[in-house]
Design a protein around this nucleic acid. Structure first.
Length: 580
DNA sequence: GCCGTTTTCGGCCCGACTGTTTTCAGTCG
């Protein structure tokens, strides 16, 4: 799948054109094309093969030819020429916060830079102040920008960002004159990683709120402090932006600051066609005399309604079809936390978890669940004290004993069985047959060739007892890439063999991711959400990241295994055993 | 460079904050 490669090349073209001061609309066309290609739900090679590149929004004749060229020869000659004429340090400088194309070119030409190290040295030697429009402050900001770049590598996982945002929000919420406060941005859309944390509030005294915010304990450095907007870096190195708006604008502002940018642009374009104007202060209509009147803005619902749409939930505001679905009245009824009846991936202290079976039952019941699976590792996974077949039988007896003492709640007998390199399972069919639910997953030999890995997983799915494929791509956010595997083939096999695929809710996994989960469910495969918790006190709450990933994948509760009752769940899973 | 209920040319999302300026360009989201 070359979507990302092509998107990044279009963005690079845009960057270079911007450095050269080209027409900004031409630049924007490349950026729009890049976004469009990156957000495609399927491999661009497939679309090219169908001759349907021109149907992608933002892709016209020119960009289509460049995509074809890249797919055929692996490069784009136009970009190669641009690269030949552009020094790398110019592109490097664009990654420094505060430096845009104009400043980059000026610094490059005046200082004869060869690298970012040169720029840092120039700043330290005070050779930047004195250049046109550059003084001591500019120099200081450039140094800070370089430091930020060196320190803050990449984005923050939502599992870190969300709790931090909640702490800041609850601290600000205590202020007497803060009336409303909410997360916004990619955090509210529950993206798996967050660039910076956006928070929106309403207050009669916006300046006081901003001032309080910039003096919170978690603040290490203040980047900006205005009348309605404050921006800080926390001690963890995460940027947090706070905006304070008036009550009458809250809905419009929440919509604006939640994004995505692509979604917002679509909404604004629609507003313009309806002779309206949408900004963060509201939705406005122009009178004949040219005066503007606010016709919506207090709530998001009001903004969408006045534009002629139903409410679109934040998690799907990515311009991947939600505007069209809203127009046609076919928006999905997204799964919610309250629909979840149980956790379908959990470890006890029989393998590498921290808690006893009884403690699991107590925690599950306290969380309001009706069931919770015990899915300890199987024998091959020595490092996690995987259970032998005898130990697993003992555990099943113990679960039976505990269940007799419970009412309205059930521990399910499960196992997270290793998929061995040849695709066979680590436990015999005799034992698997006695389990309520069999999870299969890969924990070894990650570096197999793509075809072999795909065949390995498909073989496992063909076992009549395999119910759920867990963390199917093996990726760990920020530390390990997905292994080489053809997910389209795996999804097809799951559909054929009546096997579910997991959204692993652990915030460092989120595997399946939202886009693949959407593809999977569209193929008619059931999705299971499991926290993979090893410590209930800390990790059970990860369920929300799984549910929000499902929402980002457009899933309704009918497509999620663990919204079913125990009876429905076991009946649907055991259907496969009878079939095969 | 793309696009069309403004349709093959002439538009293209919009405003806050900063740092340098005396009225604004650059950057960011």
């Amino acid at each position: 799948m070359k979507n990302k490669e092509i998107a990044s090349r279009f963005n690079e073209i845009a960057d270079i054109l911007e450095l050269r001061g080209e027409n900004r609309f031409r630049i924007n066309a490349y950026r729009r094309g890049a976004r469009s290609v990156e957000s495609l739900q399927r491999p661009i090679e497939e679309i090219a093969a169908e001759g349907a590149l021109g149907d992608i929004p933002g892709i016209g004749k020119d960009l289509e030819a460049k995509i074809d060229e890249y797919l055929e020869v692996g490069s784009i000659s136009f970009l190669e020429e641009l690269r030949d004429e552009t020094h790398q340090v110019l592109l490097d400088m664009l990654r420094i916060p505060g430096i845009g194309p104009k400043t980059a070119v000026l610094l490059y030409e005046e200082l004869k830079l060869e690298s970012l190290a040169d720029l840092k040295r120039a700043a330290l030697d005070h050779r930047i102040q004195g250049l046109p429009k550059m003084k001591a402050k500019t120099e200081e900001n450039i140094l800070k920008g370089i430091e930020f770049l060196e320190r803050a590598q990449g984005r923050t996982p939502i599992g870190e960002a969300y709790p931090l945002a909640e702490r800041i929000i609850s601290a600000l919420d205590e202020l007497p004159h803060v009336t409303k406060i909410s997360p916004a941005g990619s955090l509210r859309r529950f993206r798996e990683t967050i660039g910076d944390i956006d928070i929106l509030a309403t207050s009669r005294k916006p300046g006081d709120v901003i001032e309080h915010f910039t003096h919170l304990d978690v603040v290490e450095r203040v980047l900006a402090e205005g009348k309605t907007k404050g921006s800080v870096i926390t001690t963890e190195g995460i940027q947090v932006d706070l905006r304070v708006v008036a009550e009458a604008s809250y809905g419009a502002a929440l919509n604006y600051f939640t994004g995505s940018k692509e979604h917002n642009i679509r909404l604004r374009e629609i507003a313009i066609k309806k002779k309206m104007k949408l900004n963060e202060y509201g939705l406005f209509k122009k009178s004949r005399k040219g005066a503007e009147k606010r016709i919506a803005g207090k709530t998001e619902e009001e903004v969408y309604k006045t534009l002629g749409f139903p409410y679109i939930p934040p998690e799907i505001r990515e311009d991947t079809g939600e505007i069209e679905a809203a127009r046609e009245g076919t928006l999905p009824d997204l799964v919610e936390m309250k629909d979840i009846r149980g956790d379908l991936h959990f470890h006890s202290n029989w393998s590498d978890g921290t808690s006893s079976l009884t403690e699991l039952a107590v925690a599950g019941k306290a969380a309001g669940y009706r069931y919770l699976i015990v899915s300890d590792h199987s024998k091959s996974l020595h490092i996690a004290h995987g259970l032998s077949e005898d130990r697993l039988r003992e555990q099943m007896d113990e679960i039976d004993r505990i269940n007799k003492r419970l009412s309205g709640f059930k521990l399910l007998k499960g196992s997270e069985v290793d998929i061995l390199p040849d695709g066979s399972l680590d436990l015999s069919d005799d034992v698997l047959e006695q389990l309520d639910i069999v999870i299969v997953a890969i924990h070894s030999q990650f570096k197999m060739k793509r075809d072999a890995m795909t065949a390995r997983v498909i073989t496992a799915l063909q076992n009549p007892y395999a119910n759920i494929l867990a963390h199917p791509t093996g990726r760990l956010l920020g530390s390990r890439d997905a292994y080489e595997i053809d997910m389209s083939a795996v999804i097809d096999a799951a559909a054929e063999t009546d096997t579910a695929i997991e959204i692993n809710a652990h915030p460092m996994r989120l595997d399946l991711n939202a886009a693949t989960a959407r593809m999977t469910a569209e193929a008619g495969v059931m999705i299971s959400i499991g926290t993979d918790a090893h410590n209930p006190a800390l990790e059970m709450r990860y369920m929300r990241y799984g549910v929000y990933t499902a929402r980002r994948g457009w899933l309704s509760k009918e497509q999620i295994l663990n919204t079913k009752t125990v009876t429905q769940l076991l009946r649907s899973l055991h259907h496969k055993r009878k079939q095969m």
